[in-house]
Write a protein that binds this DNA or RNA. Structure first.
Length: 219
DNA sequence: TTGTGTTTTACGACCTCC
DNA sequence: GGAGGTCGTAAAACACAA
């Protein structure tokens, strides 16, 4: 804010404090005809200048509240967002403002507060959503990993079954041997690999990776 | 200096509550 | 019906990059 503006504001504040009963150019003019519906209104500044309500020199400035006035209004707003008539009048006389200005300030302040609250809620929801997406990705990849393990295990079972079958058909003696040893589990020469997540994968067989086309719908 | 985007002040229309 | 609320918007004031 430049010096001239500060002086103007100070002068206006003084005027409103010295003559609280005198309408400033911003105070609604009594007896204005009520428009039908949502008519584009003529700005107060223009209207007042045209009517010579500013003293005839065409000068008008929308009055910005002083820092002290805003500070006091903020303190009151923190107290209570609603403004009962008594408090409005008291605040207005304390701050040298028109009660209407105080009411308007509270209306606008409530609107800003609501916007802020909506923005905060939006950003919280956005963060929560992002976290859920990350968790979903993690779970998807875990599901994929478990499916790989399942596929490998089933494949091993299949190979074991085939080997047992071929052994038994080629050698009746070995069939007996195998049957005789059914109580003890077979221990095959599988590699013990790292599944990538630090855990040991007993069925880890890297050469199968290229055969995972069937899994593509899940990827 | 000027164009442009943002904030602040103010108001009209409409809604709700007592 | 009046008082006081929200909503949408105009326009002045302000900030700031070019």
């Amino acid at each position: 804010m430049n010096n001239q503006n500060v002086v103007d504001d100070h002068n206006l504040l003084l005027i409103s404090q010295l003559y609280p009963n005198v309408d400033t150019p911003l105070v609604p003019q009594q007896g204005e005809a009520k428009p039908a519906r949502r008519r584009r209104r003529k700005s107060k500044s223009v209207a007042v200048a045209e009517e010579g309500g500013d003293g005839g020199n065409g000068w008008f400035r929308k009055r910005k509240l002083s820092d002290e006035q805003v500070r006091m209004l903020e303190v009151n707003f923190e107290d209570d967002h609603k403004l009962e008539s008594e408090r409005k009048d008291r605040l207005a006389s304390e701050l040298g403002l028109d009660p209407r200005q105080v009411a308007v300030w509270f209306q606008n302040r409530r609107a800003r507060w609501k916007n802020k609250r909506l923005e905060d809620e939006y950003s919280k929801l956005k963060n929560a959503h992002e976290n859920v997406v990350v968790e979903k990705c993690r779970l998807d990849s875990e599901v994929l990993h478990l499916k790989e393990q399942l596929y490998d295990a089933e494949r091993e079972i299949q190979q074991l079954a085939q080997r047992v079958e071929s052994t038994s058909s080629n050698s009746p003696i070995s069939t007996v041997t195998v049957e005789a040893n059914q109580t003890t589990p077979f221990v095959w020469d599988y590699e013990v690999g790292d599944a990538g997540d630090g855990s040991e994968n007993l069925f880890y067989l890297p050469e199968y990776i290229d055969e995972f086309d069937w899994m593509s719908p899940f990827m």
